[in-house]
Amino acid sequence: MKVIGAGFGRTGTRSLKAALEILGFGPCYHMSTIIAEPYRVRQWLDVGEGRSRDWDALFTGFPSALDWPASAYWRELAEHYPEAKVVLTVRDPARWYDSVSETIFRSALEERRLSLRRRVTRWLVARRAPDFALYPRMARATVMDRVFDGRIDDRDHVLDVYERHAAEVRAAIPAERLLVFEVRDGWEPLCAFLGVPVPEAPFPQVNERAAFRAKRPHRLLRLIVRGR
């Protein structure tokens, strides 16, 4: 592991993932990796519920990792990979909250209010794709409960967690090992931090909200049920 992302989801992690892969630090582990390869859900459920934390096995073949759930374990990963550099992605807290509440948190809250139709869908998914059916439980164990104490519907609490998290990362990681990064800053600070040349290609700008809607878990659950 060469780069550990400590930033929360919805802080530009999809754009940074693309950037790291251009720079040669890929493939980059991301929540989208888990959605694309559902067997990884069980791996993270084991981590979240305290059964296993074999980081080397979990990240085999990935020289970088960003986004939840990996960033929820930034402290453990920074200790396990002492030579890896740490990137804390940040953005305006209010804008971050608007983004996360309309995407990740919205999906999680919907899980708490499952309709009969959704319960039937969940049952069918459990039969056809048992690993992916565990996704909501994994998300609760590794992010919603671990990071936010389950209080994702409390705006003030969520923003307080966001601010405290950034302060804790800054305090725990030595300055020479840490980059506090906004994706709008582009290539220069990232490349200088990683010690690589600035590429000629423009810095990737991935619309995370659109990417989430395209691969949101509920949408994939429906596709699984339909046999696609």
Rank of each mutant, 00 (worst) to 15 (best):
G5P: 06
V120S: 06
T103S: 12
P38S: 07
V206P: 00
A19P: 09
A211R: 12
P69A: 11
D54C: 07
A84Q: 15
P174Y: 08
P197F: 07
R113M: 14
F8M: 10
L190G: 02
L220F: 13
L194D: 09
M138C: 09
R146Q: 05
H80W: 12
S107N: 11
L221F: 15
R140P: 02
R155Y: 07
S64T: 02
E188W: 07
V169H: 04
K17R: 12
A139T: 09
W187T: 09
A6R: 06
E200L: 13
S71D: 10
C28V: 14
R122M: 14
R170A: 08
L20G: 08
L77H: 13
V86R: 06
Y73V: 05
A139F: 08
G227N: 04
T33Q: 14
H80V: 04
R222N: 12
G195P: 09
S32Q: 13
R95H: 08
W44R: 04
G227L: 05
W68I: 12
V169N: 14
D67Q: 11
S71R: 07
A108Q: 10
T33F: 08
H165V: 07
R128N: 05
F181W: 03
L179R: 01
P38N: 05
V87M: 11
P189G: 02
P82A: 11
G26S: 06
I22E: 06
A72C: 15
Y73I: 11
K85G: 12
V143T: 09
S101W: 03
C28H: 11
H80T: 13
A70S: 15
Y97T: 00
D185I: 06
C191I: 00
S15I: 02
R40K: 07
E168K: 09
I173D: 01
V143I: 12
A65I: 10
R127A: 10
L77I: 04
A126N: 12
L45N: 02
R91Y: 04
R113A: 14
L23A: 09
S15Q: 02
W55Q: 00
K85R: 15
V120I: 04
D131F: 00
F59K: 11
R177S: 08
R219L: 11
E163T: 07
P38D: 10
R53H: 03
N207A: 09
D145A: 00
A172E: 12
L178E: 05
P27G: 08
R209S: 08
D92G: 05
E208Q: 14
A129C: 11
G48F: 09
A78Q: 02
G61Y: 14
E176A: 14
D46T: 01
L20D: 00
R219Y: 14
D46R: 01
T89C: 07
L190Q: 06
L134C: 13
W68R: 04
R95M: 13
A72K: 12
V183P: 02
L179P: 01
V183E: 06
A175K: 11
E79H: 04
A211V: 13
D67A: 06
H80P: 05
F8G: 03
A84H: 10
